[in-house]
């Protein structure tokens, strides 16, 4: 089963995943949404860390440290950032963080990583602007996005039929690029939110 959900609060995400586990849905991967497989319903401890790795050896060292201490790596990859762990050893400590600072710092890493993503998308936006794919003229005269000859001279059913027919194409021509500024904006939003949460959790000692 696949589910799509968006969290900004790691604690809430952990709670939701624990709830899913108690209903018998075991987290399998997070490459595209949350992928669950059916398992025996069980009360579980699931915790989230945020880390990206340059080298595979670092990633393995990281996962091995958690596994040595009784936490199995459930999902997440070298570059994905969000890493999911499940407690498998009863003797292990109940959390993957033993102090407030290190727990809060995952938000700081998340904020930093989102900001980098936002910044690295920016040159793409500039490129698209200079290659003429982004043309603000269409925002002022959206009519120019419609290519059907004589569309605007038609009237009645004939007009509406052609207009409605072409609208999806026009939107695609004029608005496909908005995907990039939108993702920049959402990365900035995530970065802002995560940073705010970082500051809040540092104060909440």
């Amino acid at each position: 089963m696949r589910k799509f959900k968006l969290f900004i609060d790691f604690d809430k995400e952990e709670q939701w995943l624990e709830e899913m586990a108690s209903k018998g849905y075991q987290l399998d991967s997070t490459n595209f949404g949350y992928k669950f497989r059916l398992a025996e319903p069980k009360a579980k401890k699931i915790k989230i860390d945020f880390r990206k790795f340059r080298h595979s050896t670092d990633f393995w060292d990281y996962i091995t440290l958690f596994e040595d201490s009784g936490w199995r790596h459930l999902a997440g990859s070298k570059y994905s950032g969000i890493q999911y762990f499940e407690k498998v050893d009863d003797r292990a400590i109940d959390d993957i963080f033993s102090d407030n600072d290190s727990k809060a710092k995952r938000y700081k890493r998340y904020a930093h990583s989102s900001l980098i993503l936002a910044i690295s998308n920016f040159p793409l936006l500039i490129c698209l602007y200079f290659t003429g794919i982004i043309d603000p003229v269409y925002l002022i005269r959206p009519r120019e996005l419609y290519l059907t000859p004589g569309l605007w001279d038609k009237s009645g059913t004939s007009f509406w039929f052609s207009f409605i027919f072409e609208t999806p194409f026009a939107l695609f021509r004029g608005a496909a690029w908005t995907f990039i500024p939108l993702s920049i904006l959402s990365y900035l939003f995530f970065s802002y939110k995560a940073n705010k949460r970082y500051i809040q959790s540092m104060i909440k000692k």
Partner: peptide
């Protein structure tokens, strides 16, 4: 030592008063 041995040593040295969790240890 490697990370996990460090965690165990810290626990022993501190008379079981300081327990460091994996995520905290990795960051440290």
């Amino acid at each position: 030592s490697h990370g996990y041995v460090m965690m165990q040593k810290v626990e022993q040295l501190s008379d079981h008063k300081v327990k460091i969790a994996a995520g905290t240890m990795y960051g440290a």
